[in-house]
Amino acid sequence: MFMGIQGGVGTLPLAVAEAVRARGGEILTGTPVTELSHSAADGGGWRVVAGERVLRADAVVLAVPAAAAARLLRTQSPGAAAELGGVEYASMALVTFAYRRAEAGLPEGSGFLVPPVDGRTIKASTFASQKWGWIADEHPDLVVLRTSVGRYGETEILQRDDSELVAVSRHDLEAATGLDATPVATRVTRWDDGLPQYPVGHHARVARIREHVAKLPGLAVCGAQYDGVGIPACIASAYAAVDQIHGDLRGVQELTAHPVQSLHGGAGE
Rank of each mutant, 00 (worst) to 15 (best):
L219K: 08
V213D: 05
C234E: 11
P217L: 01
G223N: 06
P217G: 04
Y239R: 15
A233W: 09
H246F: 14
D248H: 09
L249G: 01
H246A: 14
A238W: 08
A238P: 01
A241K: 08
D248Y: 01
L216H: 07
V221M: 11
P217K: 01
D243L: 10
V213N: 03
A240Y: 05
D227C: 02
G223W: 07
S237M: 01
P232V: 01
A224K: 04
G247S: 10
A220S: 11
D227L: 07
P232F: 08
P217N: 07
G228D: 01
V221P: 06
L219W: 03
A233E: 13
H212M: 04
S237P: 07
P217M: 03
R210E: 15
Q244R: 15
D248M: 00
I209Q: 00
A241T: 05
L249C: 05
L249N: 08
A238Q: 07
I209M: 09
D248S: 00
A236W: 11
G230Q: 14
L216T: 08
A233L: 12
G223I: 04
R210F: 10
H212F: 09
A224Q: 09
A224V: 06
G247R: 11
A236M: 14
V229T: 12
V213K: 05
Y226Q: 14
L216D: 06
A241C: 03
R250E: 14
G251K: 04
G247K: 08
I231N: 02
G230S: 15
L249E: 07
P232W: 08
I231F: 02
I245G: 04
I231C: 03
K215A: 15
V213H: 07
H246W: 13
I245D: 01
G218W: 00
K215G: 14
I235N: 13
